[in-house]
């Protein structure tokens, strides 16, 4: 079972349908207890950082436990940003802090939000990006982006006026700034890879 964390922030149907399409067994989980026993956990997210953290905080202990136990975890969009310690979008609201560093706003002079399809620059081979190459494009929608202190966690970047972190990989944790569930066949490939990692 792949748990999709439902913390009251928007549309979970897209990720549910996409996981279903790659023959996973997704379940929408609204209570922290529901995460126990999940083979993998997806943390989706839309909206503002502060509001997401307010809603997500009750899952904090259960998520940390799953992380320590080695359960594969996939963060998507704001689900990547909340892994950091803090965000310029919501000063004073701490993130999960699993990745050292902060989330900052895209620079003035570029289109904000970055909305649309952009290509990746893959920085190192990771299992979830198997079958993905630099020419493949993914759907991004965001106004802020993560800046990790330790650059070795970066799996892929993209370019939107500045170098933008597109994917992070650290042990059993993987996160994308783009939306794999909205990125056509290549996005489904990433979800399929993630689901496969939960079966190892």
């Amino acid at each position: 079972m792949i748990a999709i964390v439902d913390y009251g922030m928007g549309n979970l149907f897209s990720i549910y349908n996409a996981l279903h399409h790659v023959e996973a067994d997704p379940r929408i989980i609204s209570e922290p207890e529901g995460l126990a026993g999940a083979a993998g956990i997806v943390v989706p997210g839309v909206g503002a950082f502060g509001r997401c953290m307010d809603q997500l905080s009750r899952f904090g202990v259960a998520l940390s436990q799953a992380l320590e136990e080695g359960t594969p975890i996939l963060g998507i969009c704001i689900g990547l940003q909340v892994l950091f310690e803090e965000s310029e979008e919501s000063p004073g609201t701490p993130g999960l802090g699993w990745i050292k560093g902060r989330v900052v706003r895209l620079p003035d002079g570029v289109m904000i939000p970055q909305m649309g399809w952009n290509s990746l620059s893959i920085k190192r081979p990771v299992q979830v990006l198997e079958g993905i190459s630099d020419k493949d494009m993914f759907y991004f929608v965001h106004s802020y982006y993560g800046q990790p202190q330790d650059r070795s966690v970066i799996a892929a970047t993209t370019e939107h006026g500045v170098e933008v972190i597109a994917a992070i990989a650290k042990d059993n944790l993987f996160a994308t700034q783009f939306h794999p569930e909205k990125s056509g066949a290549k996005g489904l490939k990433i979800l399929e890879n993630f689901v496969r990692s939960t079966r190892c």
Binding site: N17, A18, H20, H21, K182, S183, A185, G187
Partner: peptide
Amino acid sequence: TSESVFVP
């Protein structure tokens, strides 16, 4: 549509 179409 959203069951099988994975673009916005």
